[in-house]
Simulated scan of single mutants.
Amino acid sequence: MAITAVIFDAFSTTLRISAPTNPYRQLLREGVKHGRRPSPGDLHKLMTIDAGLREAADILGIQVTPSRMAEIESDLQREIESIEVFPDARDAIALLHEHGVATAICSNLAAPYGPAVKTLLPDLNIYSFSYELGVTKPDPAIYRAVCHDLGVVPGHLFGSAAQVAMIGDSPRCDRDGPRAIGIKGFHLDRSGGGAKRDLVQFAELVVEQFTKELG
């Protein structure tokens, strides 16, 4: 069966932050300054709560002065405003839609970034964010959720039933994780060292397979 839906990762795949300020890293550093010991689960928590910076600080038990919090929030806003769409992402999405292939974003995100992703990529069919689902890639639940919303059922990876593909910059989250549940996962290597170097190249391969199936 042809690929009828494509799932993209967000940052470093379809989008990039042109002026990073690392506000959440700043927040965690504030905790260290005030005696809070970092936890291996901090980043996971930040990406699985539907909350802003102030609420995240409260949940993690990080003490931040009002003036310092205002500075970090300002940095967060500047970072969000610097987000740009990769040109090949726009072209790839348009090509897929032209041939009837549905598209989605599946990303590990802190909540403040979600609206920006939707604004910058308004033509996608589905948006699946970790902070909304309470689970992060590569947990199988997040892939199953986006497939459910797309109305597709991932098949056996190397069999004829597969009808959804995913691509992103993380081999673990965007290639291996999807493949574990039957999604055709691909690694995007923008450095040019991998098999998939840009999203238009990838979309053309998907469309070629889709067209052959219809033919």
Rank of each mutant, 00 (worst) to 15 (best):
S170T: 12
A19N: 12
I142A: 05
L120N: 14
T13M: 01
V207R: 11
Q63E: 13
N22A: 13
T119R: 15
I183E: 11
Q26N: 15
P66W: 03
P122K: 05
F158K: 10
A57H: 06
V6R: 04
R37W: 00
L205I: 04
E30C: 07
L28V: 03
I49D: 02
P154V: 07
A102S: 11
R68V: 12
K137H: 13
R90L: 01
V6C: 03
A10N: 01
D88K: 09
R179Q: 15
R25S: 12
E84F: 01
T136L: 14
E55H: 07
H99S: 06
L121W: 03
P66E: 07
S67T: 12
S130H: 07
V164P: 07
S74W: 00
E30H: 04
D149C: 01
P122M: 02
M69L: 14
Y143A: 06
R54F: 00
G182F: 03
V153G: 11
Y127V: 03
E71Y: 07
G31D: 06
Q163V: 01
D174S: 13
P140M: 09
M1A: 13
A5T: 05
Q201A: 14
L109D: 06
V6Q: 02
L15P: 02
V135A: 08
G134Q: 12
I49C: 05
L109T: 07
A5H: 06
C106Q: 05
K212M: 12
F8T: 04
A94Q: 05
G155N: 09
H97Y: 01
Q209S: 15
K184S: 13
I93N: 06
G192V: 04
Y131K: 13
T48S: 14
G159T: 04
D123C: 00
A70D: 08
R29N: 15
R68E: 14
R16G: 06
S130P: 06
K212Q: 15
F129Q: 07
I72D: 05
G168T: 07
